[in-house]
Design a binder for these strands. Sequence first.
DNA 1: GCAAAAGTGTTAGGTGTACACCCATGA
DNA 2: TCATGGGTGTACACCTAACACTTTTGC
Lengths: 229, 229
Amino acid sequence: MAPFYIEQEKFFLSVDCIILGFTKGKLYLLISKRRFEPLKDRDTLMGGFLRSGENLEEAVSRVLYEYTGIKDVYMEQVGTYGKINRDVGERVISVAYYALIDLELFDDELCKKHHARWEELDKIGELIFDHNQMVDDTIAILRSKAAIQPLGFNLLPEKFTLPQLQSLYEAIYQTTLDKRNFRKKILGMDFLEKQPDKDKSTSKRGAFYYRFNKEKYDQLCRKGYYFSL
Amino acid sequence: MAPFYIEQEKFFLSVDCIILGFTKGKLYLLISKRRFEPLKDRDTLMGGFLRSGENLEEAVSRVLYEYTGIKDVYMEQVGTYGKINRDVGERVISVAYYALIDLELFDDELCKKHHARWEELDKIGELIFDHNQMVDDTIAILRSKAAIQPLGFNLLPEKFTLPQLQSLYEAIYQTTLDKRNFRKKILGMDFLEKQPDKDKSTSKRGAFYYRFNKEKYDQLCRKGYYFSL
DNA sequence: GCAAAAGTGTTAGGTGTACACCCATGA
DNA sequence: TCATGGGTGTACACCTAACACTTTTGC
């Protein structure tokens, strides 16, 4: 490549990850302690600087793997934050991505190693820079997307129960849903597969497992079908 | 500021603008000819490099003003495009914003000066780099947002008629709407103010002008009201 | 046998959608 | 007077939301 743009300025670019997990009816955010100056040891999202050999998504995957030990995570761009003084060190433009992970796959050892912790989403304290804003923007996106796309399944294990799924939606929308209406709607969509076995960890009777069938869902979409709540 | 991050790499950052206008029942995109190498003279979105003294939105406003002569435009971030080889010159990470402008305010002289032109949205040819992708992403966002937020008014003059407004929504969603149902719904929302005068440019009878009352709309929102289509 | 969570149908009210005719005016 | 686009009301189907009791089983 010829140096076409030499007269232009260059900038530091980072990626920040809003890593969400779900368990026991609550959404959790992975928070870490910043490892370097400025603002060393303050609460921060997982992040890292972009390197010249990688795409944005690759940088996010790298950071994600480093902090969680998980690969192949569902992620989406939240937006880019570029205010001149957002970083108190030097000017850094940051691209935020959120990731939804299944907490059962999560490596607790890595968590300790990075001084990272899962914090309840509605009890998050002050994070550095504009990281709280990034979290808020993520929640807004999650709410609007989860209603029209089956995003939530990324936060659950492969096999999950309907009460679990319902409590996930209740956590996302901070509301309570009618059990009967919820089941009617979600089962009417025809892309959940009932499994023969039950989860007996939360009740004596046990709740049947279901599985999200992506093929069926995609097939329905191609026929002009629309998911909605 | 101390040089905290010296060991990190820096990148070129640009902003690209998807500028949309609406007139005569159709959406138009402002397209320009690239003024420098590489790919000089090819069709491109309006764009420019970020400078160290400005926020992202300021860079967009600068580019927008330069090409259209308009200030105070409604704009939103579309996303950030950072693939390693997206720019054939050198690596450039680009933040895309869309802007909705009222074509009546538009300066045709500037258009000619910049070899820019309004192209019908569904007749856009090949643009440089990933600019077609940016346009597609914009349309997707516009469709999902216009249904739940009164965005469309940014594309119309202050005073507009209901047939105009309806044809705007028809253009955004590539569909036809029932006149009676549309009027019932939109007037039921109570933030359109009927004006005493008519637009007689499209019919002999003339259509009453309306005005979008942002105060009323905000007030309704605060009461938990939700706009929807 | 009882506590605790899982599972199951019906109804009323509201919302979306389809549909056809009269009105005002300039030419 | 006629052609053109602006404006109006109703009926039906569908979807949503509210609601209470039975089942299973470990203790």
